[in-house]
Simulated assay, not measured.
Amino acid sequence: MSGLQRTCLTILIIGGINWGLIGFFRFDLISVIFGGAYTALSRIIFGIVGLCALYCLTILFKPSEELERGREPEIR
Results as ranks from 00 to 15, higher is better:
residue 2 S to Q: 00
residue 2 S to F: 00
residue 3 G to R: 08
residue 4 L to N: 11
residue 6 R to C: 09
residue 6 R to P: 00
residue 6 R to D: 10
residue 7 T to V: 09
residue 9 L to C: 00
residue 9 L to Y: 06
residue 9 L to F: 11
residue 10 T to N: 09
residue 10 T to Y: 13
residue 10 T to H: 10
residue 11 I to K: 02
residue 11 I to S: 08
residue 11 I to M: 12
residue 12 L to S: 15
residue 13 I to W: 05
residue 13 I to G: 06
residue 14 I to C: 11
residue 14 I to E: 01
residue 16 G to K: 06
residue 17 I to D: 02
residue 18 N to K: 05
residue 19 W to K: 12
residue 19 W to R: 13
residue 21 L to N: 14
residue 21 L to V: 00
residue 21 L to T: 12
residue 22 I to N: 13
residue 23 G to Q: 02
residue 23 G to C: 01
residue 24 F to E: 04
residue 24 F to C: 04
residue 25 F to R: 14
residue 26 R to S: 13
residue 26 R to G: 04
residue 27 F to K: 08
residue 27 F to I: 06
residue 28 D to F: 14
residue 29 L to V: 06
residue 29 L to S: 02
residue 30 I to T: 12
residue 30 I to S: 02
residue 31 S to W: 04
residue 32 V to E: 04
residue 32 V to L: 10
residue 32 V to P: 01
residue 32 V to Y: 06
residue 35 G to W: 03
residue 36 G to N: 04
residue 36 G to H: 11
residue 37 A to H: 03
residue 37 A to I: 02
residue 37 A to K: 10
residue 38 Y to L: 13
residue 39 T to E: 08
residue 39 T to S: 07
residue 41 L to Q: 13
residue 41 L to S: 13
residue 42 S to E: 08
residue 44 I to P: 01
residue 44 I to K: 04
residue 44 I to C: 02
residue 45 I to H: 00
residue 46 F to N: 12
residue 46 F to L: 02
residue 47 G to W: 09
residue 47 G to Q: 01
residue 47 G to T: 12
residue 50 G to P: 01
residue 51 L to T: 01
residue 52 C to L: 06
residue 52 C to N: 08
residue 53 A to E: 06
residue 53 A to P: 01
residue 53 A to Y: 14
residue 56 C to E: 12
residue 56 C to R: 03
residue 56 C to M: 11
residue 56 C to L: 07
residue 57 L to M: 08
residue 57 L to P: 01
residue 58 T to A: 05
residue 58 T to Y: 09
residue 59 I to R: 05
residue 59 I to M: 09
residue 60 L to N: 07
residue 60 L to A: 14
residue 61 F to E: 04
residue 62 K to Y: 02
residue 63 P to Q: 07
residue 63 P to L: 07
residue 63 P to G: 08
residue 64 S to G: 04
residue 64 S to Q: 14
residue 65 E to Y: 09
residue 65 E to V: 09
residue 65 E to P: 00
residue 66 E to C: 01
residue 66 E to V: 13
residue 66 E to M: 08
residue 66 E to H: 09
residue 67 L to E: 13
residue 67 L to C: 06
residue 68 E to K: 12
residue 68 E to F: 08
residue 68 E to W: 02
residue 69 R to T: 12
residue 69 R to F: 12
residue 69 R to L: 10
residue 71 R to P: 00
residue 71 R to K: 14
residue 71 R to E: 10
residue 72 E to S: 15
residue 72 E to M: 12
residue 73 P to R: 13
residue 73 P to E: 10
residue 73 P to C: 06
residue 74 E to M: 08
residue 74 E to V: 09
residue 75 I to Q: 13
residue 75 I to T: 15
residue 75 I to R: 15
residue 75 I to P: 01
residue 75 I to K: 15
residue 76 R to Q: 03
residue 76 R to K: 11
